[in-house]
Simulated scan of single mutants.
Amino acid sequence: MRIAMINGSPKLGKSNSGMMLKALEPLINAEHEVLHYNMNKKPLTDEQYIELCHMDTLIIAFPLYFDAIPSHLLRMLTTLEGYMKAERKKEIYVYSIVNNGFYEGKQTYIALEIIKNWCIRSGLHFGQGIGQGAGEMMGFIEKVPLGKGPLKNLGKAMESLAQNIHTHDSDESLLFSPNFPRFAWRFAATHSFWHAKAKRNGLKKKDIIKKL
């Protein structure tokens, strides 16, 4: 099976989407051929679009933007839809991984529905999606083993996703929060992320909440 892993993050460096694809890859049977595509560098070429039309499986990972898909990824999918209608010769299954900054993974529901509808328009099969809440935690806990501690829910979801990818099965999407108390997540996000980021940019705490 030829599998395309599509990183839809706009970040040029390390991204949560990239980390989640990296965590999934070892769970996919080694007999499969995995190719990587990054939307954060330059637009896909005609050859790459055609190549995607000859894959068996597409895995699309991206961060939530205003409850939807990042604009650059949406443009790419719109273009790919045309190629699929003209070039596709076999059944292709699509799986998706979405992360968002909100604590609740259910916030990714609309974005996964958009991917489902895109699959229908493109003549593809939507297999399953997973939606991870508190995605910005990923960079701080990347050394935690998948399936352990705050990544327990993510580990279970990844195992389900990997199994369905391997067998080309479909299943209900899994939307979840990290195994980490919401109040602790909020405290850590405020003091370790927002306040620290403000300080690096020459701002003070009061500047963040200042009314314009």
Rank of each mutant, 00 (worst) to 15 (best):
I60Y: 01
P63Q: 08
P63A: 13
Y65R: 06
Y65S: 04
F66T: 11
D67Y: 13
D67K: 11
D67A: 13
H72P: 06
H72K: 10
L74S: 08
R75A: 12
R75D: 08
M76A: 05
M76Y: 03
M76N: 07
L77F: 00
L77V: 05
L80K: 01
L80R: 01
L80F: 04
E81A: 10
E81K: 13
Y83E: 02
K85I: 06
K85D: 11
A86C: 10
A86L: 10
E87F: 11
E87G: 06
E87M: 09
K89A: 10
K89M: 00
K89T: 05
K90D: 05
I92S: 00
Y93N: 03
V94M: 05
V94H: 03
V94W: 00
Y95K: 06
S96P: 05
S96C: 06
I97S: 02
I97A: 03
V98K: 08
N99Q: 04
N99D: 00
N99V: 03
G101Y: 02
G101M: 03
F102R: 07
E104H: 03
E104F: 09
E104I: 07
G105C: 01
T108Y: 02
T108S: 12
T108K: 02
Y109T: 09
Y109A: 11
I110A: 15
A111V: 02
L112K: 09
E113L: 14
E113T: 13
E113N: 14
I115K: 07
N117M: 11
N117L: 10
W118V: 01
I120K: 04
R121T: 15
G123Q: 04
L124G: 00
H125F: 09
H125T: 10
F126G: 02
G127H: 07
G127W: 01
Q128S: 02
I130E: 02
I130Y: 02
G131Y: 00
Q132P: 05
G133L: 01
G133H: 02
G133W: 00
A134L: 09
G135V: 06
G135F: 08
M137A: 07
M137D: 01
M138E: 05
F140I: 12
I141V: 09
I141R: 05
I141Q: 02
K143R: 14
K143N: 14
K143F: 10
V144K: 04
V144W: 09
V144L: 12
L146D: 08
K148C: 15
K148P: 13
K148I: 03
G149S: 13
P150H: 07
P150I: 00
L151T: 05
L151Q: 09
K152S: 14
K152H: 11
N153G: 07
L154E: 02
G155R: 09
G155P: 01
K156H: 12
K156N: 13
A157H: 00
E159D: 12
E159K: 10
E159V: 15
S160A: 13
A162T: 09
Q163F: 14
Q163E: 09
I165S: 07
I165L: 01
H166D: 13
H166Y: 11
T167H: 14
T167P: 03
D169N: 14
S170Y: 05
E172H: 10
L175H: 06
L175W: 08
F176Y: 06
F176R: 07
S177E: 03
N179E: 14
F180E: 03
P181L: 12
R182K: 15
F183Q: 14
A184M: 14
A184C: 07
W185I: 15
W185Y: 15
F187K: 14
F187V: 15
F187N: 10
A188F: 13
A189N: 14
